[in-house]
Every structure is written in structure tokens, then in C-alpha cells.
């Protein structure tokens, strides 16, 4: 640990600088004081405004599910059986797994094409878990579940909107400085 104040070298894990007595403990904690960083540390998934999910039964045909995607203008449907989320069917699943098969959408069932057991979150969790999953795993939709609420969805568009909003919020008074 090199002391940022006096530049002397200390043992790793030291609590304070041996030369100038600057405490080190504060330096390791992320400083969540303002701007996007503060919002990332404090906001919950509910702040992304999850939308009520469009749901479909696993036994439904892919054709029905695709019709739902079109009618509701959404990127994915949740596959729900007895009020439990068992899978997720996104545009990407249709492209990758059904792709060019002609006229097959009516004969294939949703559970054959869906992504089973998606990662789900609760609305009270930190927003960072959603961002982490989207960035690391490449998911574009994450179901938000709770006991007293029908399932909802957070999409990457909501995330982009959120990031955009926090940047625009931060900019005007910054620019005037």
C-alpha cells in the first residue's frame, strides 16, 4: 500500500500510514456521494419501473406466443405455470431455435423453445444485480417476481432509459459551473 499523501510504502492491509498517519480505511470504501455512482449504490430494481409481464402457458404453441409478442409490442413473454415462472421466451430464442423452420410455429410448443429457469430478481434488491446479470450474462430481460404481485419484467431498454435519465439529471448544473 503506497500512501497517497506522502508516497511511503506500507505493509499491505495496514490501517494507517506509518510515516504520516493518514488513515487508509476510508480509501477502500466506494464513495457514493453523488451522480450515477450514488444512484447505483442506493436505487432498487423498483426504480427501473418493471413492466407487467406478458405471460403464456408452456403448452401454448409458439405461434400464439409470437402473436402476443406482436400484439403487445414486447421483446419477450414469460412462461408461467400455476403462477410460477418456469421459463422465458424472447425474440432471440425464436431466432436461434426456430429460425428458418417454415410453418412450424403452430406445431412447436412454447416449452420446447423457451429458455427454462431464468434468473429472477425481487423488486427490493439493488439495481446493481440487474446490471450485473445483463452485462455479464448478456440477458436483455430479467423477470421480477414477488409473492403478492404478478410477475414483471425489466428490459435493457429500461436500463438504458435509467442511465440516460441519470446522466441528463446530472448535466445541467454541472454545465453551469
Amino acid at each position: 500500500m503506497i500512501c497517497p499523501a506522502c508516497g511511503s510504502v506500507n505493509l499491505p492491509g495496514a490501517d494507517r500510514c506509518e510515516d504520516c498517519l493518514l488513515p487508509f480505511s476510508k480509501l477502500d470504501i466506494p464513495l457514493a456521494t453523488e451522480g450515477l455512482q450514488k444512484r447505483l449504490m442506493e436505487d432498487t430494481i423498483a426504480d427501473l419501473k418493471p413492466q407487467p409481464a406478458v405471460t403464456v402457458a408452456p403448452e401454448a404453441s409458439v405461434e400464439e406466443a409470437v402473436q402476443l409478442l406482436k400484439d403487445k409490442s414486447v421483446g419477450c413473454v414469460l412462461v408461467v405455470e400455476e403462477e410460477i415462472v418456469v421459463g422465458i421466451l424472447s425474440e432471440r430464442d425464436v431466432l436461434y431455435k426456430l429460425g428458418g423452420m417454415e410453418g412450424s410455429a403452430s406445431s412447436v410448443k412454447v416449452f420446447e423453445v423457451m429458455t427454462p429457469h431464468p434468473v429472477t430478481m425481487e423488486a427490493e434488491e439493488s439495481i446493481r444485480f440487474v446490471l450485473h446479470q445483463m452485462s455479464v450474462e448478456g440477458f436483455r430481460h430479467i423477470p421480477v417476481v414477488s409473492f403478492d404481485h404478478p410477475p414483471r419484467i425489466v428490459s435493457v431498454r429500461a436500463v438504458l432509459n435509467y442511465l440516460h435519465q441519470s446522466i441528463e439529471d446530472a448535466s445541467p448544473e454541472r454545465a453551469s459551473r
Binding site: P30, R128, L131, H132, S135, R157
Partner: peptide, 19 residues
């Protein structure tokens, strides 16, 4: 869109990627 989200989050490795 994911390229942009990734780029922004890389500014916050401590907050996001160490979860």
C-alpha cells in the same frame, strides 16, 4: 445497446462487477 451498458458499467467495476 448492450455495448453501451457494458461501457458505462465498466466505469464502476467495484459497484457492479464485484457482486
Amino acid at each position: 445497446v448492450i455495448n453501451i451498458v457494458d461501457y458505462l458499467l465498466e466505469c464502476y467495476p467495484q459497484e457492479v462487477f464485484s457482486l
